[in-house]
Nucleic acid binder design. Structure first.
Lengths: 199, 199
DNA sequence: TCAAGAAACGGAGGCACCTCCGATTATCTT
DNA sequence: AAGATAATCGGAGGTGCCTCCGTTTCTTGA
C-alpha cells in the first residue's frame, strides 16, 4: 500500500546494474565493519568483482556509499523487530532486539568518524534513521506492555536514553560484554512489577 | 622538578635542515591560502625545491604543517601590532591592525575545515593563538585609550566579539569589503566621545 | 684542514583516489 | 529472432599520499 509507483523516479535499473549494486553494498558493509570508514574503495570493488568505475558510478563519493550501507543496516535492524515479534513472546522479542541493537552499534563504532561527517552534511539521514529505530522500539514495547510481560509505566525515551548511553560509552575491550549485561539488567527492570511477574 | 635539561630537546637544526624548513613553511602558507587545506603536499615540496621525504620528515602529517603555518601567521600578525604602534598614532595603529586582522581571516577562511580538525585534535593550539591575538588587541587599545584618541569606557571583549562576527559571516563575494567597512565603523565608534574628539 | 660520524636529503615504490571513454551487455523494436 | 540503442561495465592513467632507505651534506674533533 505504500507505493503504487515510487516517490523517486528511480527508473528500474538494468538487471546487471542492480546486481552489482547489491553486491557492492554487501561487501562494503563487511569492509566498513572490519576496517572502519577508511576501508579502501578499490578493495571493495575488487571483492565485489566489479571495476572501480562501477563502484564510482553507483556511489559518486565515499559518503554516498557509507550512507547507503548505514541506511540499509538500520532497515535490517528494524525489520528484525517485526520478525522477532512474530516468533517470540513479546518480552523475549524486546530483549533479543535490544541485544541486536548492541551488536549493531558495535559494528558502527569503527566508522564513527565517517558517520559524523555524514550527519553534519545531511542531518536528514540521521533524523530518518533515528525515527525508524525509535518506532521499532515503540512497537516492541507496546506489544510487551499489552501482553503484560513488562510493566506499563515505562517511557520509551527512558529506554532510548539507556541505549544511547551504550553508544557513547568509552571503547574498552569489554565494551560489548558490559553492554550486553546492561541490556539484560534493563530488561529485568522492565519486567519487574509487570502483570505476569510475581508482582 | 621535571627537567634538568629542557622540556623539548629542541636540538639546533642543521643549517640545511632549517633552511628547508623555513622554505617549506613559506610555500605552504601561500599554497594553503590559495588552494585551501587540501593543497597538495607534493606540490608544496616541489615548489620549495625539496623532496617529498624532506617535507614529511619535518611535518609528519598534514595537520602538523597546517598547525605550524597557522601559528606562524598569528605570530606575524601579533608582531605587526607592536610594529604599527611604534610608527603610528595609537588610534591609527589600532585601526590599521584591525584591517590586517580582516586580511588575515580572509586568508584563513579557505582552510576553515582543516583548522577545525586541528582545533578538535589539539585545542591547546587554539587557546594559545586566541590568547596572543587578544593580548595584541589589548595592548593597542590600552595605548589608544591612554593617549586619549579613543574613548575609555570600552571593553576588549566587545571588540573581540565584533571581530569574531566577521569570521563567522557568510562567505559572500563582497565579504571582504563589508568587513573592512565594518571595522571602519567600529573604529569611528571607538573614537566618538574620546578626549581628543570634539567630545 | 680533513676525516668520520651524524643528520638530512630526496625520490622510487606501493597503494588509493577518481575520471574518462572504448568495449560490453541488457533491453527494446520491428 | 536479430539488429538497434542505450545503459552499464571496467580498467588504464594521472595524481596524491606516505614510507623506506641508499646517498649526500653538514658538523665536529683532532
Amino acid at each position: 500500500m505504500k507505493e503504487a509507483k515510487r516517490p523517486a523516479p528511480a527508473k528500474r535499473l538494468r538487471a546487471d546494474a542492480s546486481r552489482n549494486r547489491e553486491k557492492l553494498i554487501g561487501i562494503a558493509a563487511i569492509e566498513f565493519a572490519e576496517r572502519g570508514g577508511s576501508a579502501s574503495l578499490e578493495e571493495i570493488a575488487r571483492k565485489a568483482g566489479v571495476g572501480i568505475g562501477t563502484l564510482y558510478r553507483h556511489f559518486p563519493t565515499r559518503e554516498h556509499l557509507v550512507e547507503v550501507v548505514y541506511r540499509r543496516e538500520v532497515e535490517v535492524l528494524c525489520a528484525a523487530a517485526d520478525e522477532l515479534a512474530q516468533h517470540n513472546a513479546p518480552d523475549v522479542a524486546l530483549a533479543e532486539w535490544m541485544q541486536r541493537f548492541v551488536d549493531y552499534i558495535a559494528a558502527k563504532r569503527g566508522m564513527a568518524n565517517s558517520l559524523r561527517i555524514l550527519f553534519d552534511a545531511n542531518s536528514e539521514v540521521f533524523a530518518n534513521t533515528a525515527g525508524m529505530i525509535a518506532s521499532a522500539l515503540q512497537r516492541l514495547v507496546d506489544a510487551a506492555v499489552a501482553d503484560g510481560s513488562v510493566r506499563s509505566d515505562i517511557d520509551i525515551s527512558d529506554i532510548s536514553q539507556a541505549l544511547s548511553g551504550i553508544y557513547s560509552a568509552p571503547d574498552t575491550p569489554d565494551w560489548r560484554d558490559r553492554s550486553r549485561r546492561l541490556v539484560a539488567l534493563l530488561m529485568d527492570g522492565l519486567r519487574w512489577g509487570s502483570a505476569r511477574s510475581r508482582r
